[in-house]
Amino acid sequence: MEVVDPQQLGMFTEGELMSVGMDTFIHRIDSTEVIYQPRRKRAKLIGKYLMGDLLGEGSYGKVKEVLDSETLCRRAVKILKKKKLRRIPNGEANVKKEIQLLRRLRHKNVIQLVDVLYNEEKQKMYMVMEYCVCGMQEMLDSVPEKRFPVCQAHGYFCQLIDGLEYLHSQGIVHKDIKPGNLLLTTGGTLKISDLGVAEALHPFAADDTCRTSQGSPAFQPPEIANGLDTFSGFKVDIWSAGVTLYNITTGLYPFEGDNIYKLFENIGKGSYAIPGDCGPPLSDLLKGMLEYEPAKRFSIRQIRQHSWFRKKHPPAEAPVPIPPSPDTKDRWRSMTVVPYLEDLHGADEDEDLFDIEDDIIYTQDFTVPGQVPEEEASHNGQRRGLPKAVCMNGTEAAQLSTKSRAEGRAPNPARKACSASSKIRRLSACKQQ
């Protein structure tokens, strides 16, 4: 084909351009004929944790799935940006308080904090938690009735009371019990989460009196709706648990309003109706937990002794299953770290194939690490110290990083047969305790 000078094309009309061969290198194709290559998922490591896909996002930050490269346990990490926390009232204080509380709590029905990582340079905090497959609110939203069968609701409620009793025994008032803060594992274990607005009572406090509340409006008791200066913290949790039980068994809320002012007005009056299909035992329990006067409201001991709580409820309806993943529609909620794991395991070791967030990740503290002497050669063979940054567990980050890069360049065919977990650990520049 004859090559045409581009400067001469402006002298031709459209018809003349076609005659000189423009149609031979300008093609129009339908979008259905285009085959897009999927974007390669680059592996990203935060300390010893391999990052997966997004699980959810809230006002405080994002939650992603991660894999512990040492234990191969599935975890969830809450990623918090200090810049964003400053824009939220009491944001930083709530996060630090939640970390302090979770560090000393150990119960099967309370979410466990596994690790805390802090990135000084990017001003990011990573709260590594045990993995929960789904939230209770997500399960309720997945069915038209917006409720659980009585047998399933009873099982979840009993676990909620177990976890709540443990928190109260530790002198902690949750203040925000609701389905949105109750998570579930694949085995059906309920976990109380989000202790950001919780309050730890003084060890020598005479009672459970509280003065502040930041919980969700629909789950607040009349004493808070009416603006009382002080109130019983434990009875606030009992009320919120009662509203939660009402919601998961009926699909409704005892109090509603077009806006928060109308909602608080209705809560302050204390008038509500219980659907007739709840039955006398459940209705009596709800009335005891939603008692207007805090002094007359049920205690956890009274809830445990109630006939509806103690009764064994046979399954009359099919239980609400864990819904498919909202993004991938995966009904099994498979591990989202698998594509990243395959990338590390299947590809040659190259620095361009993975990302390490930083050479140094500070753990379990908000301060910069200490310094240790770096050896410097002298005339008599002895070495003197220069400062060298280290990880919180004493690992020399720069030395590990250099060693990792040197190993990656060394030709050794046997290394390709290593397991995925050992490869992740070798790529991680800074081991965590």
Rank of each mutant, 00 (worst) to 15 (best):
G215R: 02
V20R: 14
R409V: 09
A410T: 04
P144T: 08
V114S: 02
K388V: 10
L80N: 05
K423S: 14
P89Y: 03
E121T: 07
G58E: 06
C278Y: 02
S59C: 05
L140H: 00
A397S: 09
K122L: 11
G268A: 05
P89V: 03
P411V: 15
V4S: 06
T186C: 08
F255N: 01
V338L: 11
P6W: 02
Y126R: 01
P254H: 11
S216W: 00
Y261A: 09
G257E: 10
P280L: 10
K81T: 10
P326L: 10
S232R: 11
D229S: 06
S404V: 13
S213N: 15
E349T: 13
R333H: 06
L341I: 14
Q100V: 11
E349D: 10
T186M: 02
E265M: 09
L17T: 15
A398W: 05
I274A: 05
S401F: 12
I35S: 12
Q170H: 03
D350Y: 12
D365Y: 11
V372P: 12
K83W: 13
G288P: 00
R104V: 04
F264A: 08
H174C: 05
K44V: 05
L228A: 15
E357W: 05
V20H: 12
K403A: 14
M18G: 10
S19A: 05
R87V: 07
E199S: 08
L85Y: 01
D365A: 03
G242A: 04
V173Y: 06
I161E: 00
V243P: 00
L140I: 07
D277N: 07
N259E: 12
A218G: 04
D141A: 06
Q137N: 15
Q123L: 03
H154R: 06
L184N: 02
P254R: 01
L344K: 14
E70R: 15
K388T: 11
S232N: 09
M139Y: 13
K311S: 05
K178C: 05
L290H: 00
N119V: 03
K178V: 02
K235S: 15
N109R: 03
E98H: 03
A397E: 12
M392R: 05
F234R: 12
G370A: 08
G279V: 04
F264W: 01
S193H: 01
E396W: 12
I26M: 15
H27L: 10
G56I: 01
Q364F: 09
I161N: 01
K388I: 06
R297W: 00
Y60C: 02
R415H: 14
G227Q: 09
I224R: 06
T244R: 00
H107F: 01
N181A: 01
L290T: 06
P373E: 13
H27G: 13
E165G: 03
D53M: 02
K82V: 05
S422F: 11
P339E: 02
N266A: 12
Q214L: 06
M125R: 02
P319S: 11
M136A: 03
K312S: 09
P373F: 09
V150K: 10
K175V: 02
M11L: 13
F264G: 06
G58R: 00
E120S: 11
E349I: 06
A410C: 10
C210H: 11
G381A: 07
L9C: 13
V337A: 09
R301F: 13
V114P: 04
A273W: 15
A295S: 12
Q220E: 02
R147W: 04
R147D: 00
I267W: 04
G135F: 07
G58N: 03
S69K: 10
D229E: 06
F366V: 11
N247K: 04
